[in-house]
Design a protein around this nucleic acid. Structure first.
Lengths: 154, 154
DNA sequence: TTCTGTGCAAATGATTTGCAGCCAG
DNA sequence: CTGGCTGCAAATCATTTGCACAGAA
């Protein structure tokens, strides 16, 4: 998770979203623009409610349903991905350029890191093949204690 | 997922559940026995509703709430584990002897295989360590097309 | 007898949907 | 203009909880 994204990257994301909409005959409304900006400006893994609260600061008249509906659009346009950390609600993460990654989640403070290991990816592929499956995707979440929460050596 | 389990294994599971209950000052009721048997007799990854329907065949007076409550007990006693395949509901799998495994899920027919790869486990550990985490657990689901659903060579 | 367990119905909480008016193209 | 969009409220759906009665220990 980088702290900032270049203006070029932001422009690209907006462009992608606009294309996705027009391609499907959908409209780029004020609300969708607001939600897109709030999503792009937000950090980490936002829930629908958190995004709703962010958008609300810009326009209190916005409805939760619109946020839900727009999150579906962000997901289908490839800008966002729905993730589930077993909290009983969905969170959404950015897919800047569609880079794939997995998660390392601290069970104590809830901090999440996005990680990637090409060696693991290769072995997953091999494991699937051994069972005759052709792999199309995967989900891997590692749970543990982060350096801050881990009991110090002793 | 083996098709059958030995009588000895079944007896051990029942014993474990009874121990867990008495250890917590809880009672082994007729309903809990019925639900335990339905769970042990069921195959694959049962949802609460599916288990409820199974139990209902033995005793139509049973309530959904009791099934939910008993599933929590099965989970805390170590006989079951809650799994989430992103369907918007929880499923529960047997933990015969607590053997750890991951899942290989066919996105076409829904069939799931339980798999394990010690090499991947080792790399997960290494990946966590690289980020200063001490790993306590993980969840890995591989999605793809099973041999039956995969388009034949052509 | 004494609490814990149970079934039922109501409550919850996240998400979806029907609808009447709104507005982007 | 017109068909998609929006906010609202009501509807869903899985799961949880309050309660009065039932039944293990």
């Amino acid at each position: 998770m980088r702290a900032f994204h270049s203006k070029a990257a932001l422009r690209r994301e907006r462009e992608l979203f606009a294309q996705h909409l027009s391609q499907k005959g959908l409209r780029l409304t004020r609300q969708r623009r607001l939600i897109l900006e709030a999503f792009l400006g937000g950090r980490g893994h936002l829930s629908s409610e958190e995004l709703y609260q962010r958008v609300r600061r810009k326009d209190p008249s916005i409805g939760r349903a619109t946020v839900y509906r727009t999150l579906k659009l962000l997901t289908s346009s490839g800008l966002a991905r729905e993730v589930d950390f077993g909290e009983g609600l969905s969170r959404y993460e950015h897919l800047w350029g569609h880079a794939h990654h997995d998660h390392l989640i601290c069970t104590s403070c809830g901090r999440t890191l996005e990680v990637m290991d090409t060696e693991i990816e290769r072995l997953q592929e091999r494991l699937a093949q051994r069972h005759g499956f052709s792999l199309t995707g995967h989900k891997m979440d590692l749970y543990g204690l982060c350096p801050r929460c881990r009991p110090k050596r002793q």
